[in-house]
Simulated scan of single mutants.
Amino acid sequence: MKRDASSGHSPLTALVAGTLFGAGLAMGGMTDPARVRSFLDLFGDWDPTLAFVMGGAVLVMAIAWRIQPRMVEPLFADKFALPGTSDLTSRLVLGSALFGIGWGIAGLCPGPAIASLALRPSSAAIFVVAMIAGMTIARMFEKEA
């Protein structure tokens, strides 16, 4: 299968990884905005489910970060695409704050929102359209700067 020149991986690899990710989000209940909002409600009816889902992701990534330096090349790509910087910028802080506010209000973030399109398309579509609009507006301002 032909590889994407920008990422170095095949569309099939992206499809399999995205499907696995979406299934994990759905199985973990992360496509349910009420469950996510309950996690953020520390003084009310708190639901720790999200902490377990995040803990599982951290565990998998900790293992991957230990294995990766020993690998000559990735299994499903031409080269590793690792972050090159750890600079803490005002843009990163502002973007993180806006992301957190939107996540807290909607109970969805991009991954679960896209997965929710298959489960609850009417409610998720509004969020996904707004998310794409926000990304477009941010890119317009980025080009001006």
Results as ranks from 00 to 15, higher is better:
Met1Ser: 05
Arg3Trp: 00
Arg3Cys: 06
Asp4Gly: 08
Asp4Trp: 05
Ala5Gly: 03
Ala5Pro: 12
Ser6Val: 14
Gly8Tyr: 05
Gly8Pro: 09
Gly8Gln: 09
Ser10Cys: 11
Pro11Asp: 05
Leu12Phe: 10
Leu12Gln: 03
Thr13Leu: 14
Ala14Lys: 10
Leu15Ala: 12
Ala17Gly: 05
Ala17Tyr: 08
Ala17Gln: 07
Ala17Thr: 08
Gly18Tyr: 10
Thr19Phe: 13
Thr19Lys: 11
Thr19Pro: 07
Leu20Trp: 06
Phe21Met: 10
Phe21Gln: 02
Leu25Pro: 01
Ala26Val: 13
Ala26Phe: 08
Ala26Cys: 13
Met27Ser: 12
Gly29Trp: 09
Thr31Val: 08
Thr31Arg: 01
Thr31Gln: 02
Asp32Thr: 10
Ser38His: 11
Leu42Cys: 02
Phe43His: 15
Phe43Asn: 14
Asp45Arg: 12
Trp46Leu: 10
Trp46Met: 04
Trp46Tyr: 11
Pro48Trp: 05
Thr49Gly: 13
Leu50Met: 13
Phe52Lys: 06
Ala57Gln: 13
Ala57Cys: 13
Val58Lys: 10
Leu59Gln: 06
Val60Arg: 12
Val60Phe: 15
Met61Gln: 07
Met61Gly: 14
Ala62Tyr: 13
Ile63Cys: 11
Ile63Ala: 06
Ala64Tyr: 07
Arg66Ser: 04
Pro69Leu: 03
Pro69Gly: 00
Arg70Ala: 09
Arg70Val: 02
Val72Thr: 15
Pro74Gln: 03
Pro74Ile: 00
Pro74Cys: 06
Ala77Val: 00
Ala77His: 02
Ala77Pro: 03
Asp78Met: 07
Lys79Leu: 04
Ala81Pro: 01
Pro83Ile: 01
Pro83Asp: 03
Gly84Arg: 13
Thr85Tyr: 05
Thr85Trp: 06
Ser86Glu: 15
Asp87Cys: 11
Asp87Pro: 08
Leu88Met: 08
Ser90Trp: 06
Ser90Val: 05
Arg91Thr: 00
Leu92Phe: 11
Val93Glu: 07
Gly95Lys: 04
Ser96Ile: 03
Leu98Cys: 01
Leu98Phe: 12
Phe99Val: 03
Phe99Thr: 04
Ile101Gln: 12
Ile101Pro: 10
Ile101His: 14
Ile101Asn: 12
Ile101Ala: 15
Gly102Ala: 01
Gly102Lys: 00
Trp103Cys: 01
Ile105Gln: 00
Ala106Ile: 01
Cys109Gly: 14
Pro110Gln: 07
Gly111Ile: 00
Pro112His: 14
Pro112Ser: 11
Pro112Glu: 15
Pro112Phe: 10
Ala113Val: 12
Ala113Met: 09
Ile114Leu: 10
Ala115Glu: 09
Leu117Asp: 02
Leu119Gly: 01
Arg120Phe: 14
Ser122Thr: 08
Ser123Gly: 00
Ser123Trp: 06
Ser123His: 10
Ala124Ser: 07
Ala125Val: 07
Phe127Asp: 00
Phe127Tyr: 12
Val129Lys: 05
Val129Thr: 06
Met131Gly: 03
Ala133Arg: 01
Thr136His: 09
Thr136Leu: 06
Ile137Tyr: 12
Ala138Arg: 05
Ala138Gln: 04
Ala138Trp: 08
Arg139Ile: 04
Met140Val: 15
Met140Ile: 15
Glu142Asp: 14
Glu142Gly: 09
Lys143Asn: 01
Lys143Trp: 05
Lys143Glu: 04
